[in-house]
Amino acid sequence: MAKLLPGLLLSNFSKLSLNSLQNAPKFTACANSILSRAEKYSTQHTPYEIVNDDQDYGLPNDTIEKVNHQIAEKQQGRLFAVVQVCGKQHKITQRDVLIVEGYWPPECGEKILLNKVLVLGAAEFSLIGRPLVQQGLVNVEATVIEKTLSHTKTHFRKKRRKQYMRTKFFKIPQTFLRINSIKVSPDVNNPPEVQGLDNVIF
């Protein structure tokens, strides 16, 4: 693995943004315009950028230190996360209940770890994965509390003037998940040397 600058490491694994109003970085490039912020957050595509390896693109280290300090001192408050379960993304926080639709093997009472975390957020900071937040940094635990079937859904097809009419009824299996805890370790922007081998069996 090539040696990377700390700023580049950050951009490779997770992007960090401070979004409390006091700590928000100022964009001095176009500060003289009233529309600067609107332009900054517009939906227009990002222009191509030539990345200079020598330049440090990351946030100042004290920002990361502040976040790590907040997590270590447990001052971050309630956390939320965006996780992907069975192909769908859910925004969750502790004690939420969410329903996973379709056939899904986990049984009632089983505790599972949701480890596809796309975003982790607190009141004052967000960790944004690209696409996933570093494995092992965030720990989302959930319990399966119920497995039922949905209400009867009707599938009705008809072709006019063709004597064709089909009605089908079906129910979808549903799994209720209770989110037990969302935990972060105060180790932001410190990825291990080798990644992606957690689930690999040699």
Binding site: R78, F80, I92, T93, R95, L98, Q174
Partner: peptide, 15 residues
């Protein structure tokens, strides 16, 4: 019973 939403939260917004 038809479920209107497939999730429930007591904390709709954190930020």
């Amino acid at each position: 019973v038809r479920l209107r939403k497939l999730m429930h939260t007591d904390f709709p917004s954190i930020q």
